[in-house]
Each structure stands twice: as structure tokens, then as C-alpha cells.
Write a protein that binds this DNA or RNA. Sequence first.
DNA 1: ACCCCGATCGTA
DNA 2: ACGATCGGGGTT
Length: 168
Amino acid sequence: MNKDKLPKSFYQRSSLEVAKDLIGKRFFFNGISGIITETECYSGSDDPASHAFKGRTLRSSIMFGQAGISYVYLIYGMYHCLNIVTDVEGTPGAVLLRGLKVDDLHLDGPGKLCRFLNITKEHNGLDLSLLDDFYCSDGQALEYKATPRIGIKVGQDKLWRFVSAIYN
DNA sequence: ACCCCGATCGTA
DNA sequence: ACGATCGGGGTT
């Protein structure tokens, strides 16, 4: 049990704030941990790149739900992406974990991150504010820069990708 | 029942 | 810069 585990209230804010604040935090999964070095935020009807842009669908409804819940989906038929749901219930939002520094290894990319940690769709819908082997904890405040998000064709005007300065 | 394409990655 | 890859979300 870790007393530094980030509480539900941490995630219960706008995805923009949470995405920035997660840089430098420590992420734990299945006995492995690392420093979060890169995130992206996704919101709702104001964000055409978001899965929640068109409203609730079977897949996106999780983004409208409780903060602190994992949202894992498959992309390009072969890679998984891990997000953490943000904002209050009814307001869609999520933060994509794109980079993690595990010891000397830098996992740069959401697919690589999930592949290394063996995170799959089985880990969708889990509560990071409750579990003891799937959560974030306090870390160090890190400098970061904001850039457009990667791999999207819309919403490129928004600088919603956050990359730590020293690890990238 | 099926079509289409993607919040990627690795190699060139 | 670009092609491989294919599961499954969204719609019929």
C-alpha cells in the first residue's frame, strides 16, 4: 500500500490540467514503475481528435464516466494505448500515457509502453485510485514543453501534448 | 454482417 | 518519408 497514491480527486479535473500534472509522476503497474515523461490530453465536443467528440458510443462512453478509470483500446490492429479518464462524471476527458522512463529504459510511444508492461484491453475500466498494482504516485515536478498531438489529422491547432524537457 | 481506417512502429 | 498490419468500432 502506498500512501502517495494519487487520489481520485487528482483525476477529477480537466484533462488539460491532469495531462500537465502527470509529467514527472511515477506510474506503477504489475510490480514495475517508471517516471511519466510524455502525455496527451483528449476532451469532448470541443476536440475533434477525441474518441468522445461525437458523443457517447460503446467505446467512448468510458470517457464520460468516473475519473481515475483506465481506458485501454487497440490501435492499428496491433498496439494498445493506455489512458486515464479525467473530469467529473458526464464530462468526457482522458489523458494518454505516451512516455515512461523505467530505469535506463525510455519507453517513447504509447504502443511501446503498453507492449513492455503487457497492458491490454483486459486492463480497461480499472480504477487507478483504488488498485495496489495499477496507479500513479507523486514524483518530481519536471519541466515540460507543449506541442501538437501525434498521429492525428484533426485538432492539430491545440498544443495538448506534453513532453518532459530532460527525458526527451 | 461488413467495411474502413487509425491517439503506431520500425525501417529506409 | 512510408508501408505493414488487422482488430474492432460504427454503421448498415
